[in-house]
Nucleic acid binder design. Structure first.
Lengths: 143, 143
DNA sequence: TATTGTTATACTCTATAACTATA
DNA sequence: TATAGTTATAGAGTATAACAATA
């Protein structure tokens, strides 16, 4: 077996866990959670409004779960629901001004955090890290 | 900012998420969950029996949470509680034979999975990946 | 007075199943 | 008959606060 594989896997999980904790704390200060923040980012990344079903597909979760997330986000003023113009079963979810601002801010902070984490590493090393990560992701996805 | 930083961070989270899903599925087939499996692994890695308080410290969670995890693990026959010989407030948690077998098996499977994921990459690349991961972890831990 | 583990309570993530309205 | 979203229910991760027994 490849030397260092287990260590690499351990480091990967440890890293994800620590970064996840940090994110969680930062989001909590703004009354958000990782799952709810993810909804905002998906809406922000989309070039058009999404229907709840599409949100469920993109977040890989159940429609039922989306109902709850959107309920909370709507109550907090981040998104609002609109009836679909032609399909009366469907509900369009759109970011409010507040939601757009929150998503923008999260994107900016993510860029800054990424920059800070890898700052004093040679570009070559970061590229190598990314290449390995993508290689492993490919393995997982196709097969 | 370092080019590729954001992509590296994204890939890292994606990877952790996919691997986490796989683990979750595998563990569920054995009536375990990630949190409960972690208890077994910590006990297995320790050279001596641990008290619940020590488990909470090592898992970075609350003593209350440990109570629940150990309750379930004990009911399932993976661990058993023993009164501490000298400190009557404390409770020692030890793996049963079943628990030891489960922990061993998880360790073996983790080694195999790690090997499979990184198999067709040059050792140099895996080492580089690990070095970057550890560098970033250091940044997070000390500062 | 401090510590160990517990009861009580609560929020969040996530899922399945049954149901309503609509396509 | 299939689909979108909801109500109902449930398990799991995780936390804080209050408390009893013990150190």
């Amino acid at each position: 077996m490849r030397r260092g594989s287990v260590e690499a896997l351990d480091a990967l999980f440890e890293l994800a866990s620590r970064l996840g904790d940090l994110m969680h704390t930062d989001l909590a200060a703004r009354e958000l959670t990782p799952a709810r923040a993810e909804v905002l980012l998906v809406l922000r990344d989309s070039d058009r409004p999404l229907v709840q079903r599409e949100l469920a597909d993109q977040l890989r979760c159940t429609p039922r779960h989306i109902t709850g997330l959107v309920d909370t986000l709507e109550a907090g003023g981040w998104v609002h629901r609109t009836p679909h113009p032609t399909d009366r079963r469907a509900t369009i979810v759109e970011l409010t001004t507040t939601g757009v601002a929150a998503a923008k801010r999260m994107q900016r902070e993510r860029r800054q955090a990424a920059g800070a984490l890898f700052r004093d590493l040679p570009a070559r090393d970061v590229d190598g890290f990314l290449a390995v990560a993508r290689h492993v992701l490919d393995r997982l996805n196709h097969q």
